[in-house]
Design a protein around this nucleic acid. Structure first.
Length: 707
DNA sequence: GCCGCATTAG
């Protein structure tokens, strides 16, 4: 009897290790036939067999059959469920309570499973309760208990607690090191992770494939690429490159460090590629701006016979977003429908994002509306989509609906909503959103801080913009840019230029937007020389190649200062294709300075280029009127009619008590139009009384008449 | 004689 039981047991162990359910079942039948089913060792091992094969229902059935359960019976069922992730871990909590209620004392094996369940659930209070019980009843210096415990604290975000457990461990194995390092990696603490990795190498060995993937996942910024290469070398030396997980982590690491050539090499040398390998290189290219490479590799992947996963689709869809490749995007949309991925929430989010970035905000909304319970990322994507497409009112409407449905925003939601407020100059609403950011406990880090200071600046409240800007714990180039442009746009150019000097002192490298802001500040203040200084500094000191925007600012600076001739020569020297915008600026300046000859020249260039802007034709014809060249006046007006150019009506808006009031030229429909007229009359009278001379010269009059 | 810990992709 004893010998039979022992040999059954040996086979059960073997089949469990092989996860061979078929042979296991046959053996199970044999055990019942021979009447050995009540042997506790065999009964526990049967529970374990079904649990390890993922058949938890059968495991549970066998577990219930055991009349006198011992701690191992409980351990087998608990650990079976804890390996099933989130769903199983909930059941572990119940099982653990029942076990204690039935007065079975947990041991170190139990706690290992319980801590794993708590980490799956990110349930720190469950984990801590179990921890205090473990201290009282179990030998906590066990390496399995220690590793699962510190992993639980890492996954719950208690890094210091995790480190305390880690430090106290009398012995550590690669699992402990991997868990602790990935704890730092999750919190983006690359330096701490790497320091710990070095400590491991000093103390013990080189780690295994799990340790290497953990440390690689921490190295996500270009400044860590050298560390990443060190790990790569170590993996090569220790023969760990044969693990596909290591290859995948290397590809991801190089891509995140923006070393795409290295990422491609790592990809090529990963011999046993899986779908993750392909997704990693595709996402890498997509996120570093090499969208066409991403799409090319996506088709190679299918050619190589790999089925794309949901993660692959997220990567290729983001590649389509970046290049606004709506045709490819729609094809990929069709493909993922065929594979049945459309109900996955982050696929839906990528689709919304793709359509919104392709300026197809209606299709984006269609995708958004198809999901019953959008999560916060999806809400944010849709709201951000509206903002990107200038549909700021829609963005605020949707945000209102989101609040009504009781969904809590995240930092990115708030940044988008603030941007909508900025564009609408919706001051009251902006302040309310500011209050919400405080209520939800968001700090003034990028992007909220910059969005807030931009909002205040765009609404004309520079003092509050500055307060927010000064309180930001860290400022990036975008924060500086938004404050500089806020000052410049509100007529405080001198402060904008001072702030730029402060930015340089603080060591933040300006980008091309900074220089657009600086040049536009110079233009408002009439600082021609200073403008030239910045224009030259941009390339000479920072290597930024000027774009049409910068050339436009220079033309503006020169022509506002009345240097019309110099502006014309400057435009003729511009080495890039600038379309109509530079001539357009010069033409306006010629109107103001009555430089009719150069004005006529600029206007003719605009007509040649087929300008669709009515004002260009209007000014040109008024210049010819002033010069008495009636045939040319007639010719300009004929071309204008022929091309069907219409004057866009002027439009302005203001927010009063959370309502936006829009006015169009010649507006008669505003409900308070009578009162508004009275105020205008009063202002006109006051203006006259104070002897202000409005400019009503010949050219402006003509401009008004042509409406 | 049975049971336990970790990694990569948005």
């Amino acid at each position: 009897m004893n010998t039979l039981s022992r040999s059954f047991f040996t086979f059960l162990l073997q089949f469990t290790g092989q996860k061979n359910l078929q042979k296991g079942r046959a053996l199970h039948a044999l055990i019942l036939k021979t009447g050995l089913g009540s042997d506790i060792f065999l009964a526990n091992s049967l529970v374990n067999l079904y649990a390890k094969c993922g058949h938890l229902d059968e495991a549970k059935l066998e577990f219930k059959e055991i009349e006198v359960k011992d701690v191992v019976s409980w351990n087998c069922i608990i650990n079976g469920y804890s390996q099933q992730g989130l769903g199983g871990s909930v059941i572990v909590m119940e099982l653990f309570q029942t076990m204690r209620a039935e007065n079975t004392f947990p041991n170190s094996h139990t706690f290992a499973g319980v801590f794993t369940a708590a980490s799956n659930l990110s349930d720190a209070s469950f984990g801590q309760q179990a921890h205090s019980l473990a201290i009282k009843t179990t030998n906590c210096s066990d390496v399995f208990v220690g590793s699962s415990l510190l992993n639980m604290y890492c996954k719950c975000g208690f890094l210091l607690e995790a480190r305390r457990v880690f430090n106290k461990m009398p012995q550590r194995n690669p699992v402990s090191w991997a868990a602790m390092i990935s704890g730092y990696a999750i919190q983006r603490l690359a330096v701490e992770a790497f320091v710990l990795f070095k400590l491991m190498r000093q103390e013990e060995d080189d780690g295994n494939e799990f340790v290497l993937t953990s440390i690689l996942s921490a190295l996500v910024l270009p400044e860590f690429v050298a560390n990443g290469k060190q790990i790569h070398g170590l993996a090569l030396k220790n023969g760990l490159l044969s693990f596909v997980s290591v290859g995948n982590s290397l590809v991801t690491m190089y891509a995140k460090c923006r070393s795409l050539d290295d990422a491609l090499q790592a990809f090529k040398y990963t011999s046993d590629k899986n779908s993750i390998t392909w997704s990693a290189i595709i996402t890498g290219y997509a996120q570093t701006g090499y969208s066409s490479n991403a799409l090319r590799i996506f088709s190679e992947m299918q050619y190589a016979g790999f089925k794309p996963s949901e993660f692959t689709f997220v990567g290729v869809l983001s590649a389509c977003s970046e290049t606004a490749a709506v045709r490819e995007g729609k094809q990929i949309h069709g493909y993922l429908l065929k594979l049945g991925f459309e109900s996955q929430i982050f696929i839906r989010t990528s689709l919304v994002d793709m359509y919104a970035k392709c300026s197809d905000v209606n299709d984006a909304r269609k995708e958004f509306d198809q999901l019953k319970d959008p999560d916060i990322v999806l809400w944010t994507s849709m709201i951000g989509g509206y903002v990107q497409n200038g549909e700021n009112e829609e963005a605020l409407n949707l945000y209102g609906r989101m609040q009504m449905e009781g969904i809590l925003p995240n930092e990115l939601t708030m940044a988008s909503v603030l941007k909508a407020c900025s564009s609408l100059a919706a001051f009251d609403q902006g302040k309310q959103v500011h209050a919400c950011t405080v209520k939800y406990g968001f700090s003034l880090e990028v992007p909220i801080g910059s969005a807030l200071s931009t909002m205040y600046a765009k609404c004309g409240n520079l003092e509050d913009a500055n307060i927010v800007f000064r309180q930001m714990p860290g400022r990036d180039v975008i924060s500086w840019n938004s404050m500089i442009s806020g000052l410049s746009q509100n007529g405080r150019g001198d402060e904008a230029l001072k702030l730029f000097e402060e930015m340089r002192l603080e060591g933040t490298k300006p980008d091309y937007v900074t220089f657009v802001n600086l040049l536009s500040a110079c233009s408002h203040m009439g600082l021609v020389e200073r403008g030239w200084v910045y224009f030259k500094m941009m390339f000479d000191e920072y290597g930024i190649v000027p774009t049409v925007e910068h050339y436009a600012c220079m033309v503006d600076i020169l022509s506002r200062a009345g240097k019309i001739e110099e502006a014309k020569e400057f435009i003729d020297s511009v080495p890039v294709d600038h379309g109509t915008c530079l001539w357009r600026i010069l033409l306006s300046a010629c109107r103001n300075y009555h430089s009719f000859d150069i004005g006529a020249y600029a206007g003719e260039r605009l007509m040649e280029l087929g300008s669709q802007e009515s004002s260009a034709y209007v000014i040109l014809s008024s210049i010819y009127t002033a010069l008495g060249r009636w045939e040319d006046v007639e010719r300009v007006r004929r071309v204008m009619r022929l091309r069907g150019v219409n004057k866009e009506p002027g439009c302005s808006w203001i927010e009063v008590k959370s309502r936006v009031h829009v006015f169009v030229v010649g507006d008669q429909v505003h409900p308070q139009i009578v009162e508004i007229r009275e105020v205008i009359q009063r202002l006109m009278k006051q203006m006259k009384d104070e002897r202000y001379q409005p400019s009503f010269d010949l050219l402006f009059r003509d401009f008004c008449n042509m409406k």
